[in-house]
Computed example of a mutant assay.
Amino acid sequence: MKVYKAYAKVNVFLKITGLRDNYHEIISRFMRVNSLYDELSFVPKDDESFKIIGNFSCTTQQNTIYKAYVALKKATKSEALDKLMKTHGVEVKKSIPAFAGLGGGSSDAATYLKMCNEVLHLGLSLNELAVIGLEVGADVPFFIYGYDSANVSGIGEVVEEFKEELLDYEVFTPDVEISTPKVYQTYRADFYAPIDDFETQRLKKTTSKEILESMDVSEANDLFNPAIQEYKKLKKHYEQGWHFSGSGSSFFRLKEDG
């Protein structure tokens, strides 16, 4: 069976631009991490229930892969999809830590959608898959498109490719499980200071390397200060020169040459 790679991402920067209902609108640079990925494949099974084989702490119904299946079934009404999931399970070899700000769940969901599209010859475009993926999570469209680097805005649904060299990262994930909604709540209550359109446009045009070299961790990521306020032990893991991905808990920096 073919093995598909679901890559991690880092947020080179993540800034809040405003509010939309209960959501925060963002501008962020997502970049793929080539050295960190989960591996997904379809494997034959005996019973007909939906099966995900892998090391997950959540229930099947809470898993992003299952949610992607439900969204794809709703969108396509595909009988072939039903048949596939009765005869095959999804095996996932996890390397991307959960609750880490690296997009592991979103990447798994996106990869599952692309696997089904390919194996079942559903003929869906990347745009159509991205719309389905958005029902699973705001970060899923980025992984559907498979860009090295992209400016992501809105609540995550606007993905614009940013052409630049793919950088090599060192990633460190402390053993701190973070709730993204909680970090956003703390940001809104204690740190709310959206950037203006001028600053948004400037960031969108600046290369990731320049951002990482010119901005410190709290300048680049609006969620860093609320995260360390909410999770005190996270601060012990922070070291100068590292950046913070998403709502955490992962830190990253450029790999040094040699």
Rank of each mutant, 00 (worst) to 15 (best):
F30L: 00
L203K: 01
C116T: 01
Y23S: 13
M215N: 06
L129I: 08
D21E: 15
A71Y: 05
K235L: 15
E219W: 04
K204R: 08
K5Y: 12
R253A: 06
G105R: 10
E164R: 08
D148F: 04
R202C: 00
V158D: 03
E170A: 03
E165S: 11
D108R: 10
T200E: 11
A220I: 03
N55T: 10
I52W: 11
Y37H: 09
S106A: 14
I195S: 02
K15V: 08
K205L: 13
H24W: 00
M215T: 00
C116L: 06
Y7D: 06
S249I: 05
E170L: 03
K67Y: 08
V217C: 09
Y66K: 04
A130D: 12
K86N: 11
M31I: 10
K93P: 05
I65F: 04
H88F: 13
I26P: 02
Y169K: 01
L166H: 02
F198W: 01
K83Y: 13
I27N: 05
L203P: 04
G154F: 13
S179R: 12
A100C: 11
A138E: 01
S249R: 05
K235Y: 15
T207L: 06
N127T: 10
V43R: 14
Y4T: 06
E213K: 07
L223F: 14
F56T: 03
S208K: 00
E48V: 12
S179E: 15
S250D: 06
P226N: 14
V3A: 03
L254Q: 09
F198R: 12
I195R: 04
N63Q: 08
N117I: 03
D196H: 06
E128M: 15
K45V: 07
I132G: 07
M1H: 12
T180F: 12
A227P: 07
V158W: 01
F13S: 01
I178L: 10
V131M: 05
D175Y: 05
